[in-house]
Nucleic acid binder design. Structure first.
Lengths: 220, 220
DNA sequence: TCTTTGTTTTAGATTTGTCTAAAAAATATT
DNA sequence: AATATTTTTTAGACAAATCTAAAACAAAGA
């Protein structure tokens, strides 16, 4: 496996988190990475020459097989470091993410595989997200209630248990439907309400009652 | 403490290892970092504006108080990671250095202090080099026989036990004298001979008998 | 279909860190 | 001291990753 820059790795990771069936758009990626659409176009041309994304002008992008492999490797590094920070160094759940963002770009294969072994081959990181194994396999497709979804994990709405018109009205007002991709950004213990983020939109809040009726699937 | 780029940190670390009493020259630093003298000049101007080095054109450079603090912090990170890799992940002594070169640039203060605690506040890294504490203090001035000096550690010749003319002739031929800065690059167990490197010169070999008569001090 | 709106790309500039080649300064030699 | 050699700096260029502003394209509305 070649070596990629921190910037390239961050783009690959972001595309992985945004893409599922469909392809990812320039604006979506720019929003995700807090950068400008023009920068995204530049990088996509570069990643295309490296055969990490499929890309034609104006048509969005998707990871290639190699791109997906790289994404899973970066996610593996990230989640193993998160586990290490929480389990061994006693960092709190909220703190691990930021530090792991840096550690995930240290690219020694041996380091990560030995770390994995040292940690006892953990299957989930401290937020509950599955950790890809050394060959890049990751647990997939588990369906969970939105109120149980770990923070900052992209998931897709796949089922709504209450289908009353009152509920559907609320959902359509919030622009949530089957197939909608979202992440939970914060959980408020006081009333079980959640702050969630939809693709390309700013964060919004939903009540605990609503969350209990929405079911989501992890991304592959 | 501000954040510095990997490149800036590598320059600071290299100056620290080369400097002791005297100041460091452009060519020395270029040789150490495998770069060009012109690049060194460029970087020195930048580090001067950041008040990390004292520098006037054509007069060499020295770390400022802040520069030295930063150097000790980077060395602390490096050596703690080396200890972690050897002790916890079971890397061999020869392997730890390269990986620690990457890990040392992850700059979270909390990460390093918690790692230190997790490791039990070790005082020496796997090569025997002392590890600076959280406040930047490092064990200093210990005098050791050259044959006991850990690999890749800059030290200064401070005493020669045999002062026969035969010995002094050999020393002057090798350009070794009191105050000479050197590092041991390899140790050959077969005959106790050493491969050492002097500032700006390529590696040379010395016999075990000679090494036993040379004493060195660690840099501050 | 034509037009308006919004998205994406291009063109050109900027920053960081590097380089080569040439000029300037310091050191060594005769 | 004058000259030659070595060291260091300057000047100008380049690659990576980003930006702004403007142009090209796609999608939506009239």
């Amino acid at each position: 496996m070649l070596n990629y820059s921190t910037s390239e790795e961050n783009y690959i990771k972001a595309i992985y988190h945004l893409q599922k069936e469909g392809s990812v758009t320039t604006n979506e990626l720019a929003a995700e990475l807090q950068t400008r659409p023009a920068s995204v176009t530049d990088m996509m041309k570069k990643l295309r020459t490296k055969k990490l994304v499929h890309y034609e002008a104006y048509k969005g992008f998707k990871l290639t097989v190699d791109g997906k492999k790289l994404a899973l490797l970066i996610i593996r590094r990230h989640r193993l470091w998160e586990f290490f920070l929480a389990e061994k160094l006693k960092f709190s759940w909220e703190e691990v993410h930021a530090v792991a963002e840096d550690l995930e770009h240290v690219s020694s294969k041996k380091l990560i595989d030995k770390l994995d072994e040292f940690l006892g081959f953990p299957r989930y990181d401290p937020h509950g997200d599955p950790i890809p194994d050394a060959s890049g396999k990751i647990e997939t497709g588990k369906q969970v209630c939105l109120s149980d979804l770990p923070l900052n994990t992209t998931a897709i709405v796949c089922y709504v248990s209450d289908q009353s018109s009152a509920m559907l009205e609320l959902l359509s007002h919030k622009k949530i439907g089957l197939g909608t991709k979202l992440e939970v950004k914060k959980k408020f213990s006081f009333d079980q309400s959640l702050e969630i983020k939809l693709r390309q939109q700013s964060a919004t809040n939903i009540s605990g009652d609503l969350a209990k009726n929405i079911f989501v699937k992890y991304d592959e």
